[in-house]
Amino acid sequence: MQEIIISVFNIVGSSFCVDADDGQKVYNLIKKALYEGKKIKLSFQNVEILTSAFLNTAIGQLYRDFSEGKIKGSLSVENMLPEDKALLKRVTATAKLYYQDPERMQTSINDILGEE
């Protein structure tokens, strides 16, 4: 199957991929392609700065809509700097935990209250 290449730089229109709203544009495209059963290569060519907020919306929330297996099998990245890939890995790990146990945030509040 032919892979669809999505240029993050072009979708955002800037090498600074920092806003959550810009991440949403990338997410909408990936989601559409995944629902259609397509394979996607996300290109980070010419991207200089990424924030966790951008990656949370662009990629993190895919774990709400699709299984880890589906995402792993359908999505890949290219031209991503190692430190940016490390940030992406952190974002996906946080998303997996979050969607596995949505009550986790509530219980974490009890932990803070119990500390003092």
Binding site: A53, R90, V91, T94
Partner: peptide, 20 residues
């Protein structure tokens, strides 16, 4: 503040976060 400083803690609903 202490709660928000912990990795993965976010007040956002329906989407993960809390990494910044």
């Amino acid at each position: 503040i202490k709660w928000a400083m912990i990795d993965g803690h976010s007040t956002k609903q329906g989407i993960s976060g809390g990494i910044g």
